[in-house]
């Protein structure tokens, strides 16, 4: 590859030859067919138990919101896939005042499924490889997914506060600029839930026959012809 000036060298951390993980799926076509077969199953299961799937991310986001914005957030609850973030504010004649004085309380719903669909997507990618010890190897990818999805729920809540409470929220010292909140929200809702499973899948299965044959073809020419 002379035009690029550099080439991807076989990574020392990628198992090669007989040390390579012997995954069940070795060809791209087989992998794609397995993913397409598993996606409906994983999505149906996810939709049926979406509160449980979202629970770790919801708990994490609740802790972050309460620690980050103790003067804004009152309570965070989860029901039927919707995380409800109750604030300490109420509204009277367009002014945001203490909820107790206002006699009402502002709360903002967050659809956790907009984040948590990343999990059935990853599960389909994961088991499409038919990995050995598939369930135990699912643990750390789920941890990372829940961590990022939790941040996504925080970013969505911050966007809701920004649009709902306006300067009452944005003027707080702990709150970043409106542009930063908008960027974080866009990234965590549009990009992260769909992209993150793919990134984690590539990292998790970089030593598989399928991926290592593609990623380090120069070192393993025979495998590249699968």
């Amino acid at each position: 590859m002379p035009e690029s000036g550099w080439r991807l060298k076989p990574d020392a951390k990628i198992p090669q030859g007989k040390d390579r993980e012997d995954e069940g799926v070795k060809t791209l076509r087989s992998f794609i067919l397995h993913v397409l077969a598993l996606l409906p199953l994983s999505f149906l299961l996810w939709y049926a138990i979406s509160d449980y799937v979202a629970a770790p991310a919801y708990l994490l986001s609740g802790v972050i919101l309460n620690v980050w914005l103790p003067d804004v957030v009152d309570e965070v609850t989860l029901r039927n896939g919707t995380m409800m973030v109750s604030t300490l504010f109420g509204e009277v004649n367009g002014a945001f005042i203490d909820a107790y004085i206002a006699g009402n309380q502002l709360a903002y719903p967050v659809d956790t499924r907009l984040q948590s669909y990343a999990i059935p997507f990853y599960v389909a990618l994961h088991f499409a490889m038919r990995p050995k010890q598939g369930l135990s190897r699912l643990a750390w990818p789920l941890m990372i997914l829940w961590l990022v999805l939790g941040l996504g729920l925080v970013a969505t809540s911050a966007k809701n506060f920004m649009l709902g409470l306006g300067t009452t929220f944005l003027d707080l010292s702990a709150v970043p600029t409106a542009d930063a909140i908008a960027l974080a929200y866009q990234f965590f809702t549009i990009m992260a839930p769909a992209l993150l499973p793919v990134v984690i899948w590539i990292y998790t299965f970089r030593g598989s026959t399928l991926l290592s044959s593609l990623l380090s073809a120069a070192a393993n020419p025979a495998q590249a012809m699968d």
């Binding site: 993913v35 996606l39 669909y117 997507f121 769909a194 499973p197 793919v198």
Partner: peptide, 15 residues
């Protein structure tokens, strides 16, 4: 719209 198609589009990118 919200859950399935984003996954299929990203799967397209991956493929």
């Amino acid at each position: 719209h919200l859950y399935l198609w984003p996954v299929l589009i990203m799967l397209d990118v991956l493929v």
